[in-house]
Design a protein around this nucleic acid. Structure first.
Ligand code: MN
Ligand code: MN
Ligand code: ZN
Ligand code: ZN
Lengths: 138, 138
DNA sequence: TATTTAGTTTATAATTAATCTAAAGTAGAA
DNA sequence: TTCTACTTTAGATTAATTATAAACTAAATA
C-alpha cells in the first residue's frame, strides 16, 4: 500500500491523516504478514523501525480508533495487557501461557458445531477460541 | 459442605486452615450454584455476606493458591480485570461485553471438531471458547 | 492567502488491577 | 510452652490504561 492510500483510508474513515497516523498505518498495514502487538510493542516498533517517537496517548487513541473502524481487532486473553491483531478476519489463536506468544489458527481449521443460543435479548458479536499451550518439557 | 470438610480440604492441600481461608471456602464452595467473581467481588462478598474484612493481599494469595490446587479457574477475557470461576469443569462462556456478565456454556453444548495440532514442542493446557454477546437493542 | 474551527498530539497526572514488602500474627510441630 | 515456618496485613510499588488540558495542526471558511 502506498502512503496516499493510507491518507485516503483515514479520510474516508473520518480520521484526519496526521503524520502520526500515517506512520502507524505503515507500521501496521504495510507488511507481508499480519501480526499481534500490544500498544507498548507498537511504541517500540515506531521508535526502532520508523524513528518516530509517538506518545503512548496517541498510540492508544489511534489503536482504539482503528479498532472502532475495524482495522484492528482486540484479542481477549487472561493477561493483564491487551493484544491487538492486524488480522481482522475471523480466526482463532494458540496462546503460549509462558511466552505470551500468539499464533493464528485459521477459522476453517476448527469446526465449531452447535453454537448455543445466546441468553434472551442478546446476540452474538464475536466468538473467540483460545487454545492455551505451553512447552512440553515444562 | 461442613466447616470441618474445608479444614481437611485445606490441610490435604498443604494449606493451613486459617480463619480467613475457611471463610473464603465457605463463600466460594458452600453454594448451590457455581459462580464467577473478581477478587474485588470476593472482597465485597466477604464483607457483606460474612462480615469478614479480609485484606486484598490475602484474597489474591488465597484465590491464586486455590487456582494452583484446581479449586477455582481463571477466565480469559479482554477485560482489564481477571475473573475466577468456581465451576472447575471444562466448559465455556457467554460474555456480555456491556455488563461484563458471564454465563456458563456446558462443554457438551459446543462441539469442537478438528482441534489443530499445537506448534511443535508445545502441548495443549486448556481451551477457552468465549462467545461475546450484547443486547439486541444496542 | 489569512483566519477560524474543530480535531489531534502530547506531557503529565490520575486511575486501577495486581503484586511486593516487611512486620505482626498464628497454626502446628517439637 | 516454645519454636518455626507459614500466613495475614497495611501500605508501598508496579504497570497498563485512561483522563486532562495546553499546544499544535488539518481543513474549512472568509
Ligand atoms: Mn481494554
Ligand atoms: Mn492491569
Ligand atoms: Zn490473530
Ligand atoms: Zn464458568
Amino acid at each position: 500500500m502506498e502512503n496516499l492510500d493510507f491518507i485516503n483510508k483515514l479520510r474516508n474513515s473520518g480520521l484526519r491523516p496526521t503524520k502520526q497516523r500515517i506512520k502507524i498505518c505503515e507500521a501496521l498495514f504495510n507488511t507481508d504478514k499480519t501480526f499481534h502487538f500490544t500498544v507498548n510493542d507498537l511504541a517500540e516498533i515506531m521508535q526502532k523501525n520508523f524513528n518516530e517517537k509517538i506518545s503512548l496517548a496517541t498510540l492508544y487513541n489511534t489503536v482504539h480508533a482503528f479498532k472502532k473502524k475495524g482495522y484492528v481487532k482486540e484479542i481477549s486473553l487472561g493477561n493483564d495487557k491487551s493484544y491487538f491483531d492486524t488480522n481482522v478476519s475471523f480466526h482463532h489463536h494458540f496462546f503460549d501461557i509462558r511466552t505470551n506468544e500468539l499464533t493464528d489458527i485459521n477459522s476453517n481449521e476448527i469446526e465449531l458445531k452447535n453454537i448455543p443460543n445466546p441468553p434472551k435479548g442478546k446476540s452474538i458479536k464475536e466468538i473467540d477460541v483460545v487454545i492455551n499451550v505451553e512447552n512440553d518439557s515444562q
